[in-house]
Design a protein around this nucleic acid. Structure first.
Length: 280
DNA sequence: CACGTCACCTGCGTGC
DNA sequence: TGCACGCAGGTGACGT
């Protein structure tokens, strides 16, 4: 499900409070960790997880690529939502949660000392959670953050031309750049007027700068619109109402009016405007 | 190193 | 109505 903007939205919501529940996970002491679907826990073992997380306090909530990074007193709790993961914070005073019931597809729960709880729900069971003293063991392989100022057109040009790969799979490779998924990659390539099959080695310096600018533009717009909500999983975002190409097969390109085409690249549905995005 | 294929999972929409 | 099929925001393990 989520790409960088959706994960960023979760982080901000959990950190700063949401809707009728104006509280933060930051400062919460974990009273108990409950594992409902064991494979959700990538590491450590379930027994060690429960023992080790008890009593730790959440001090900082951040994001690295598509990972949520909860800094705890001693460890880091890393969560990757993959395709269908969802997080919800339930208040201790919320009547309907007093029974402490679980919803279908709830996989892992953190019960906080003050009575509220954070629940990880994941229909497709692809999501994973890590508890580790060294988050680099998990996120160390990630490429740079696309919104990080230290990444500039010059650096990005060198990164692209150092490889000889199709642009779309390369942009979706988290070790190349962190946070882009199927939606934002299609949107960024369209904005930069680049075909997804273009070889990264053939990119000019100008095109590299334009692509980085496009990536940042679509990510920032996604964040500003609270992410994209498609289907039944993630609610609240509205970026899905502003897609230029993603999921708009046969509709008119907002730039030139040409019908948008769907192709498959690296097993993923890919949307392009054949007028704007030419393959040389 | 680049790329294709399958696996991991569940649920929804479509067409017969 | 039932049912097969294709599709879905992600990633990792293989084989070529």
């Amino acid at each position: 499900m989520p790409e960088l903007p959706e994960v960023e939205t979760y982080v901000r919501t959990l950190r700063d409070g949401c809707g009728d529940y104006q509280t933060s996970v930051v400062g919460q002491e974990v009273h108990e960790g409950v594992v409902l679907w064991p494979r959700t826990l990538a590491a450590p073992s379930e027994s060690e997880f429960r023992q080790r997380i008890k009593g730790q306090v959440i001090t900082v909530l951040g994001r690295r690529g598509k990972f949520l990074d909860f800094s705890l007193s001693q460890d880091h709790l890393l969560i990757h939502l993959r395709m269908s993961g969802d997080l919800r914070l339930e208040s201790a005073v919320d009547e309907k949660h007093q029974s402490r019931e679980y919803k279908s597809h709830d996989r892992l729960v953190l019960n906080f000392a003050e009575g509220s709880r954070l629940v990880f729900n994941d229909t497709r069971k692809f999501g994973r959670v890590w508890l580790t003293a060294d988050p680099d063991e998990v996120t160390g392989v990630l490429g740079p953050e696309p919104l990080d100022e230290s990444l500039n057109g010059e650096v990005f040009f060198r990164m692209l031309t150092a490889r000889g790969r199709q642009l779309k799979p390369l942009l979706m490779d988290q070790s190349f750049i962190a946070g882009l998924g199927n939606i934002y990659t299609d949107e960024a390539l369209h904005t930069a007027k680049l075909h997804p099959l273009t070889n990264s080695r053939d990119i000019t310096k100008i095109q590299a700068a334009a692509l980085l600018k496009a990536i940042r533009a679509v990510l920032n717009e996604g964040i500003r619109r609270n992410g994209a909500s498609i289907d039944w999983v993630y609610r609240g975002g509205e970026f899905q109402n502003h897609f230029r190409v993603y999921g708009r097969t046969a509709e008119a390109c907002p730039e030139c009016g040409t019908p948008i085409e769907r192709l498959v690249v690296g097993q993923r549905g890919t949307h392009i405007c054949p007028g704007c995005q030419r393959l040389k």
